[in-house]
Design a protein around this nucleic acid. Structure first.
Lengths: 189, 189
DNA sequence: CAAAAGTAGTTAGGTGCCATACTATGCGTA
DNA sequence: TACGCATAGTATGGCACCTAACTACTTTTG
């Protein structure tokens, strides 16, 4: 249990969904659904939200956000210069979002914009010396924390987890696909 | 590969981080860090972000957001009436966020606010008939999609995944803890 | 070669969530 | 009983990301 200045409860466990909770929801509508499957989905959602939040806290220690760090890291991975559209594709966000990220990074002096001589529409993004320094400085702590995060898993378990996570990630499209196979509902009303 | 109306690329694979990418980042600073650990962390982050986004698309089909659905479901799980502070604790969000969620749900007629006679400060939230109907209507599709999401895992794998995910979730605190054990950096500069 | 179509980046406006600070009400203690 | 303090809910302002629409430039094409 952790409190903020207003003594508001920020339950670190974040109300982990339980199996009985899932069962109760399914039973309420007499659905032929595996409660454990729902539990897995709920837990993953909770974990994802928690990780996203923790990630923002982590990067804010360095004056960055998750998105801005990822942009810097991707720049570093590409000789320090990239087009906004490339960045958007690498990060999996829209070009509009990249524009916003660059705005702040440029304001803070970590990247700079440069007009292209080849194509007048393009304005490439360059990692400044200060930006490279920022990455250099945060690397030890950043990676140490990431490693610590999975420290409760041994080598074999990490491989296993990657495999399972990969398949669940594929399954995420079931949420966004146009249609879905809905089983019969044996309602007793 | 999916495009929106502006023909903007929304890569569904979301640029999955690779092992060589992780290795490169670590080697750049001569850190004594397990690349696979970093890969697990990166993949989980990517998965979490993707799931969060997919979740919003899923619930938007019913005119809800992830947060608003969770609030309705929690209300249903508590005889249709709860205090905002209870909701905040159950959902793992702040009371301020709950206020915002209720505002919209009330505007849409899915919940209503009721003043307490016991404590003048309290204003309990009640699930309306329309709100209950909404939950009833979306349940079959909602749960079918969630089940489909983990459909690529069999029963044993689901248990295993829950176990591993649980431990990684515990480890997330490594990102937010005050201090972290940083290993020596054998730089060759 | 000019008009039409496409592309790169940006702007504008919206959603979801948060932290902080505020108001109103209740309560403990002297 | 009256002061201070705690608590419940809310308003405000912020950030990250989105979609849609716009500007400026380039390529295609009749």
């Amino acid at each position: 249990m952790r409190m903020n200045k207003d003594n508001q409860v920020l339950n670190d466990v974040d109300a982990i969904p339980s199996l009985v909770q899932s069962k109760r929801q399914i039973d309420r509508y007499n659905l032929d659904i595996d409660a454990q499957a729902i539990l897995v989905a709920s837990r993953l959602m909770a974990a994802g939200a928690k990780l996203g939040h923790a990630s923002e806290i982590h990067f804010s220690r360095f004056g960055l956000s998750t998105g801005r760090y990822r942009l810097l890291a991707d720049l570093e991975d590409n000789e320090g210069e990239e087009l906004p559209s490339q960045l958007a594709e690498h990060l999996g966000v829209t070009r509009a979002t990249v524009t916003g990220l660059i705005d702040i990074l440029e304001r803070d002096g970590l990247v700079s914009r440069r007009s292209s001589s080849v194509d007048g529409r393009q304005r490439s993004v360059v990692l400044t010396e200060e930006g490279a320094k920022k990455l250099r400085e945060m690397a030890p702590e950043h990676f140490a924390r990431l490693e610590a995060m999975v420290g409760l898993l041994n080598i074999e378990e990490r491989s296993l987890f990657l495999d399972l996570l990969g398949r669940v990630t594929q399954g995420i499209s079931a949420l966004t696909d146009e249609s879905v196979e809905v089983k019969e509902n044996f309602s007793n009303e």
